[in-house]
Amino acid sequence: MASESAPARQILAAPRRVLRFGPTERAFHWIHAAGFTVMTGTGVVMYLPALSARISDRPTLKAIHLTAAVLWVAALVVVPLLGDRRALRAAVRQLETFDADDRRWLLGPGRHRRRGPGWRARIPQGRFNAAEKAHSIVQAALAVLFVVSGVLLWLGERDTAFRLPGTIPLHDGAMFVALVLVAGHVYLSLVHPPTKPAMRGMLTGEVDADWAEAHHPKWDAPPADAPPPGYDAARRSRPGAAPVVAALGVATTAVLVVVLVVL
């Protein structure tokens, strides 16, 4: 375990790093982030009359919203097909598994333990802490609900029989919940000092080893060997990145064809 071999500190200049996210996982995350940003942006403008009146181009906004939706779903399907499925499966397994520490982290330390300030920091966490797990589970469920209600909205424009009383409340409700979660997620990744170092992991794949040991002590993190500039990193990312780029290309082309036909 990383924590057992922790004291060995070889090079002072280069901080030790561990590998947290592979290219496929990062692609999955950023596709989700981009899709959410574009669809929330266009959706809110179409949804708030004050903004609709000001921006005043519903056909374009709607086309962007629908294109983004199709691209997003297509990419979420294509990336696992062409990317590192083993890594994704491992991440999913870790995210959906809650051990006793996770339950304590989420529900409280229990009657016989002291709560006190910073009690959560004393509960050892794995590669994902309990809140990260809960967040991704809720986001995954919201993604499904966005798609279900969005498809119903699309159908409802064609046949009012598909206009169920709960479609709009569901699409809106999912949006409100997701907005709150994403706001917290962005705050933790950009602002909050203890969690900010995680951002590097989603950008480059690597996080600081000391930070990982302090915040995720139960995580048996694979070291990211300090590489000679360019060489190791390129070798590690190329096999994963190429399929992802290919996937995005294929998805974009497919969707452009679909959109041009549909719209």
């Binding site: 397994r93 598994t97 469920a141 279900v148 409340p169 139960k218």
Partner: peptide, 29 residues
């Protein structure tokens, strides 16, 4: 390793949220 223990309650939570959300198509109004 942290993925070797614990229960996949996350999957149940995921399905539960999706189920409640889909059912809200009927009671959401």
């Amino acid at each position: 390793p942290d993925d070797a223990e614990g229960r996949p309650v996350g999957r149940r939570a995921f399905l539960g949220i999706v189920g409640v959300g889909v059912s809200s198509l009927l009671w959401g109004g």
